[in-house]
Design a protein around this nucleic acid. Sequence first.
DNA 1: CACTATACGGAACGATGATTCCGATTGTCA
DNA 2: TGACAATCGGAATCATCGTTCCGTATAGTG
Lengths: 200, 200
Amino acid sequence: MIPIVNEDAPRRPLRADAARNRERILVAAEEVFARDGLAVPVDTVAERAGVGVGTMYRHFPTKEALFEAIVVHRLDELLELTRADIEAGARGDGATDRFFAFLDRVGEQVSLKHDLFDALGAAGVDLRSSYGDRVAELKRAVQLLYDRAVAAGGIRSDLNADEVMQLVMGVCHRPDGSPADDGATRRLLRVVCDGLRVRS
Amino acid sequence: MIPIVNEDAPRRPLRADAARNRERILVAAEEVFARDGLAVPVDTVAERAGVGVGTMYRHFPTKEALFEAIVVHRLDELLELTRADIEAGARGDGATDRFFAFLDRVGEQVSLKHDLFDALGAAGVDLRSSYGDRVAELKRAVQLLYDRAVAAGGIRSDLNADEVMQLVMGVCHRPDGSPADDGATRRLLRVVCDGLRVRS
DNA sequence: CACTATACGGAACGATGATTCCGATTGTCA
DNA sequence: TGACAATCGGAATCATCGTTCCGTATAGTG
């Protein structure tokens, strides 16, 4: 129950070079994971950061840990936007459009950040990751916005948050070496959104 | 230009046990690749076939080669159905429904056979695989059925075969350890099809 | 400036998975 | 049935990748 050590308070400030390297590693990892997802070898990140692997492992005890650091950051950004959407809180006519705009945003992130896709994909399978609660929150947000749009009468009611996520993720995912986007992803997402609308 | 040996004609008939093992390997691979996709270790296939890895490698010089044998078979089945659809050849009212039924079939295969997904996904990236021409044919078929449905006035016209495939594949793909289906996939595909319809 | 705790780099290690090799086995044919 | 080529099985090998270790370098401090 009571943790032996307080993990939140750093024992002491990092040495200057250590702090610098930690930052470099995070920046490099953000780029590399975005491009190639979790599959990329750790050496790639280290090289890109201009740092030895040993250094990486001092800062992040495991590849997973580094990945999680990135993904948690990504999810926090996404949740920030989401909260804005929720609080803007249209329940009337705006609800449907707001929901679609939200899906657009999620879709854009997923198609841009390969790591987000991997994380959310894996999250479906195992929710015990350290960002599991954030994923749960995201899912709750999706469900809430979806329910509001349903209540506003704009979209079909026979889905749930998981299924909506599967639609967006599936459609917006871009396989590894695929060429530039030129708006195809957005167009596809629009097809899905049209499909969600109630038949007029 | 002229091949030194004719690869199509087997030098001599296979020995009885060899033929039996070859068949077992194919059966095992079909099951295992369907369940786990290309990611599964070759030993799993060998074990399932009740055969040593060495035996596998005598029959298929590479993991890729075995995988291709399976996928080519899968694609041929799919193309068979597709040709039936094409020749049934409705150009009028039926074209849209026929197109959707076709997508249903593709979606079902993709969600059932994990290997098909891997193969088609990779095919987008590198078309030089030995089944590349079959994929190309499938794509042509999709385009044809799509064009007919568009001509019949049933669906939107701003997509192409690649994009239609991406929609279906993304939506129907089932991540590795995911639970049983209970019709969710079909429901999602229906959303997509509704999205493809022209607004009434 | 010297001293030491901290941090660094990258070679070495361990696990996993594809592929190769070779002594043992077995089908086929006379 | 005996001989032999085809085939088999699975241990050994090679490559990749995550992780650990340890000798070296350096920021911080007096």
